[in-house]
Nucleic acid binder design. Structure first.
Length: 522
RNA sequence: CGGGCUGUAGCGCAGCUUGGUUAGCGCGCCUGCUUUGGGAGCAGGAGGUCCCGGGUUCAAAUCCCGGCAGCCCGACCA
């Protein structure tokens, strides 16, 4: 094997079969596995560690804006769901329903007994039940705004589960707020929309297109829905977060009213917004490579793993001591760009050093350090950056310790820039006719294999007249409008970075000035 | 919920057409030796209700019937 380029850890490669590659990364990186319950997953320590990082940081952002965490029940009375017509319509098909509260043994089998008078649904989202409480809690304009958030599991009975991307049960954060005016509620919607955008880009290093959902893609019951759309390495879009302006729809349905300063009784304006464990799927498909996952340093449970090279000799004790000293120096004294202590782990398990290192590479740890007798003797450190497949580097102990913070920042930035370049290169803006657009989507990815795997060629940014007919003009090719790019500071203005060429609708040729992002999606 | 396919060791598979010793192979796992700083080698070993239930047969992983589960492709979705 010496002297030869090692084969990638993940088989098949991204190029060969992207969906299979994805599943293999989930396995090889020890993130999660499908449970023995249909559509559900077991999130393993490494995968959950990433979720915890993400959760902790985002929770900080949410709290910093005045929201308070709460917890509402998993079960929702059916009658609550029935209150908002569009909401019912949107979620009815994927609802898990509890109809019994007891099991009885018959012929050695347990069968449901004790039928409930009113079936209970397992929450697919919590607008209905939180709205019911808001209606009780809010009496006066002085009770507003009410800013709530909860971290919870939800259940949506999906037809085609895919680990992290679409599972029957998933974890998320759902914010629910109530406001006195439409303007305020809209400002809240945009505020959290902005939080998601910068969270995705700065923390997860996933560049996104921020925009508004077209009518058909709106959250059931929302007046306006906004999403951040990320581009996966196969060119497909992934909705990575949503923020909804619900207007007075849910307030009307749930009776969330208040008396304003003039004594007039009016419906509150509500919002909701969320991101889910799907973000881990986005992370995999954005930063993963043919050697496995690649976790941005800010999201990594361990940013640095130190692997002592043990040889079963008398030098071992010294090597371990040296490794401990390194871990202590990095973990106790160094800070990342956000001022947090660095997360460093000593891997002293009794496996071969190369095997351990390889395992951490597949898991995507940003920096893996190997220290052996030579390093201990020379007061040096050997390390590899996950983002550069090249050779191991060497530095003196002090230089490494003092430079590791900046190095992690650099890796974070490298990942972002790579993804940003891919996104920029993957957006076509020059299709102005239906034929050109159809050619774009029909051509699929580069190469026949890629096409066979259903790889998309990317995003098409084109003008749209706004008609429902034109919205679905490319549905037969798997592409729909993912969003209408919007300026994060103004929901009614186009995003200056995402403008399409031309002045006529790509589907019908009518005059059009709306920029729509068409893409195949997850 | 329609169409196609598959259930054999932790994972990935062969065997099934044409029933017949102890059901194999790769990876992983365990032990030993040799190795070790670019993803080990050799030798030995553990691990299986062949998805479940019934039927045919002297004999079923293999044939038949009925279940169940999963995957892929569509319609739906964070």
């Amino acid at each position: 094997m010496a002297g030869k380029t090692p084969s990638p850890a993940i088989s098949p490669t991204r190029e060969e079969d992207f969906p299979a590659w994805y599943q293999e990364v989930v396995r090889a990186a020890d993130l999660a596995e499908m449970a023995h319950v249909r559509g559900c997953m077991v999130i393993k320590p490494w995968g959950f560690g990433i979720w915890e990082r993400l959760r902790d940081v985002l929770d900080g952002e949410i709290r910093a804006r005045g929201h308070e965490n709460v917890y509402f029940p998993l079960f929702i009375p059916l009658s609550y769901i029935e209150q908002e017509a569009a909401h019912v319509e949107g979620f009815a098909k994927e609802m898990a329903v509890v109809t019994h509260h007891r099991l009885e043994s018959r012929d050695g089998k347990l069968v449901p007994a004790g039928e409930l008078e009113e079936p209970i649904v397992v929450r697919p989202t919590s607008e209905a039940i939180i709205g019911a409480s808001m209606a009780q809690w809010i009496q006066s304009y002085r009770d507003l705004p009410l800013l709530l958030n909860q971290w919870a599991n939800v259940v949506r009975w999906e037809m085609r589960p895919r680990v992290f991307l679409r599972t029957t049960e998933f974890l998320w954060q759902e914010g629910h707020t109530a406001h006195a005016t439409s303007t305020e509620a809209m400002a809240e919607t945009m505020e959290m929309f902005g939080v998601y955008r910068s969270f995705a880009e700065d923390f997860l290093a996933i560049p996104v297109v921020p925009g508004e959902k077209p009518p058909s893609e709106r959250f059931p019951g929302a007046e306006r829905s906004f999403s951040i759309e990320a581009m996966m390495q196969d060119g497909k879009a992934l909705q990575a977060g949503t923020s909804h302006f619900l207007g007075q729809n849910f307030a009307r349905a749930a009776g969330i009213d208040f008396l304003d300063a003039t004594g007039e009784r009016i419906h509150a304006y509500t919002t909701s917004w969320g991101v889910s464990t799907r973000l881990i799927g986005a992370l995999i498909m954005t930063h993963g490579d043919d050697d496995g996952l690649c976790v941005p340093p800010r999201a990594a449970p361990h940013q640095i793993v130190v692997v002592p090279i043990l040889r079963g000799e008398e030098t071992d004790a010294g090597v371990i001591e040296y490794a401990r000293k390194l871990v202590g120096s990095v973990g106790a004294r160094q800070r990342d760009s956000a001022g947090e202590p660095l997360r460093v782990k000593l891997d002293d398990r009794p496996h071969r050093a190369v095997d351990k290192r390889w395992q951490w590479v597949k898991r995507g740890v940003p920096v893996v350090v190997e220290v052996g007798p030579r390093d201990a003797a020379g007061n040096t450190v050997s390390y590899r950056e996950r983002t550069s497949a090249g050779e191991s580097r060497s530095a003196s102990f002090d230089v490494f310790v003092n430079g590791i913070g900046p190095l992690l920042s650099e890796i974070q930035s490298t990942l972002y820039v790579r993804a940003r370049d891919r996104l920029d290169a993957g957006i076509a803006r020059d299709c102005t006719t239906r034929a050109e657009a159809e050619e774009f989507f029909a051509s699929g990815g580069e190469g026949s294999e890629s096409r066979a795997q259903g790889n998309s060629r990317g995003f098409l940014l084109a003008k749209w007249c706004g008609s429902p007919e034109c919205e679905v003009a490319f549905r037969h090719l798997g592409a729909t409008i993912r969003c209408i790019p919007r300026s994060p500071s103004d929901p009614d203005s186009p995003h200056p970075s995402f403008l399409a060429e031309g002045h006529s609708c790509v589907a019908c040729g009518c005059p059009a000035d709306t920029d729509a992002l068409f893409a195949q999606s997850y």
